[in-house]
Design a protein around this nucleic acid. Sequence first.
DNA 1: ACACAGGGTTCCGATTCGGAATCAATGTGC
DNA 2: GCACATTGATTCCGAATCGGAACCCTGTGT
Lengths: 178, 178
Amino acid sequence: MRWDDIDKQVCSVARALSVVGERWTLLILRDAFLGTRRFDQFQSNLGITRHRLSERLGKLVEQGVLVKVPYHERPLRYEYRLTRKGLGLYPVLMSLARWGDDWMDRGEGAPLEYVHHKCGHKTTPVLTCGSCAEPLRPQEVTPTLGPALTALAAQLERAGELPEEIPPILRRSMREPM
Amino acid sequence: MRWDDIDKQVCSVARALSVVGERWTLLILRDAFLGTRRFDQFQSNLGITRHRLSERLGKLVEQGVLVKVPYHERPLRYEYRLTRKGLGLYPVLMSLARWGDDWMDRGEGAPLEYVHHKCGHKTTPVLTCGSCAEPLRPQEVTPTLGPALTALAAQLERAGELPEEIPPILRRSMREPM
DNA sequence: ACACAGGGTTCCGATTCGGAATCAATGTGC
DNA sequence: GCACATTGATTCCGAATCGGAACCCTGTGT
């Protein structure tokens, strides 16, 4: 399978990665969350080539993750800002940063720390359950078929499909996790 | 800058991506979290080529994200299991999945849902502050220099550096975020 | 008229990817 | 004993992607 076909999969992770899964894209977004907005700032911060940067920014705008906002008329200049969709990637970036802090440290401690305004403390981000607010651990979560896959499964059943025609995501979700 | 040099950056996101930022790697890990363990299962679930899969698995093992555990002697066969380091990526995967559910839906609802054993509810993962347990929003968090960067900054100051020699991450972290 | 800044685009050689075939080490069925 | 399957790793090749550098365009400032 070609990489550009992953967005066709019935899998949210695959679909997310079809937008942010290319080289540099998440680093561009990290910079955006730290306040970078202009083409040249991105370019010199990241050390990405102008060509690649332009390509990635274009795709992110196309996908609604960033918007081009004019900050200067004549000559018309745009800056790139996170949309609500883009801001939604905050947990992804923070989780990556936390994992990097925890597991990729070189003995000098974390590069950045994060102060949470509400409580005034340095924060350690934790993924919690939206229902009970407990930390979410992989061993304590069971994936089940959601609407999209139940529909698909029913459809296949009506068609009287053979086992080997079950799409990967269904096969996967039928096994016991972890 | 070449992509394989990003692990040299003083940035946790960059370091994390040097391990999990290549094509397919996060999809392999998604499968691992759903219970996939054997080479051929990964291969047929993902539709990745054997060559690429072997390469990616090798790197993940090298980096300590997966371990090869023998599940059959003679012929010696290994399966790939998540280590503690690998399990630490759960928030990254869940956040990606949630973002995909929220923003990449095609009108059929989520592919998978997740039941949390503790509370018995379908869970929506939320990133919260480890200190005050409130949801963590980008606007309410200020990044500050951590140990690694304060040390670096002090070092540069002693050397009496010129502004343009300030490394990207420092330049970034000096600007006002968002 | 000339240099400069911001924001790209074009071109080219190098790297990586995808697909398919091949190899290899052990079994298993008959 | 021999064909065959399993579980991978390895090789080869054409296609796609990447990295580096040069070039372009619009407007400004002098």
